[in-house]
């Protein structure tokens, strides 16, 4: 009698269909692969197996598949790809839990570098645009900052789990060639840094950035982002919160207020 584990190892090879592309301007094509089954394998270990022996399902020698990866524990966001139609991280995509043939595609929202590797530069540009950091550098010691209430820290921590993986941009119908929408991730980061007691010193600058073209108003409220986020970040709550903050900010700026005079200085 074989043990359950042995039965599993006797399973048929795992079927893959990989969408490939030889370069940024190349044409996309599908290539099928068969990978010997091993217990507990994930998509990345299968891709590594193909790299070790780059032969496709037809038995022809081919080039190894290109993909991106980093931490292998779903915190870096680098290995995102579309697996069986769902954008997610390939490191936590367990073969046992996937329907075969397993279909791997690059995320379409981003420029393709090669095969499954995409260029997520636009996300990092968006973080720069909205100033998603707390500026504390100076010429002298500024001393300790204000304390953050514990209950606020708890929800802000959830927002800090964003790993810029790109899954929310991939699922968003308003992130495409015809719009310059920066995407849900950066909007949520403004909420994170605006909620930080020291970060709040630069609240208005971030809101101003969100009000520019491609900013918060490009959101169409399809709310796919919150459904697909692998970290369960309340992206749509963040977007609504930023809608409120930018609305109030624009009123204060237009009608005048002693708070939020940054905008005045910027427009001058």
């Amino acid at each position: 009698m074989a043990t359950p584990l042995e039965q599993k190892t006797n399973q048929k090879p795992v079927q893959f269909i990989v969408q490939r592309q030889d370069g940024p301007d190349g044409k996309a094509y599908d290539e099928a692969f068969e990978v010997p089954y091993r217990p507990n394998m994930n998509v990345i270990s299968a891709l590594m197996e193909i790299r070790r022996n780059p032969v496709n399902a037809a038995g022809e020698k081919t080039t190894p598949i290109n993909w991106d990866m980093g931490c292998l524990e779903e915190v870096c966001g680098a290995c995102s790809m579309v697996i069986n139609g769902t954008p997610r991280q390939s490191c936590t995509a367990l073969v046992d839990k996937l329907e075969q043939p397993i279909r791997l595609q690059p995320m379409q929202t981003f420029p393709i570098v090669r095969d499954l590797q995409v260029d997520r530069q636009r996300m990092f540009d968006a973080l720069k645009k909205v100033k998603a950091w707390v500026p504390i550098d100076g010429t002298y010691d500024l001393g300790p900052g204000p304390r953050m209430p514990e209950n606020k820290r708890q929800w802000a921590y959830e927002l800090s789990k964003c790993m810029t993986c790109g899954v929310c941009l991939e699922a968003c119908p308003n992130v495409n060639d015809r719009s310059n929408f920066i995407g849900p991730a950066a909007l949520s980061q403004v909420r994170l840094f605006n909620s930080h007691p020291t970060g709040a010193f630069h609240k208005e600058e971030r809101l101003e950035a969100l009000m520019e073209d491609g900013g918060i108003m490009q959101c169409g409220n399809a709310q796919n982002c919150v459904e697909v986020c692998p970290k369960g970040i309340p992206l749509t709550t963040s977007i609504a919160a930023m809608n409120r903050q930018t609305t109030l900010h624009s009123f204060k700026k237009f009608f005048g207020s002693d708070e939020g005079r940054t905008g005045e200085a910027v427009s001058r």
Binding site: A171, P173, G220, A222, N224
Partner: peptide, 20 residues
């Protein structure tokens, strides 16, 4: 409307249908 794109084929969530 023309700066958006329909992706209800891949994401069949209720709100995505409302969007479309």
């Amino acid at each position: 409307a023309f700066t958006g794109s329909a992706n209800t084929g891949r994401y069949t969530y209720f709100r995505n249908w409302m969007y479309v």
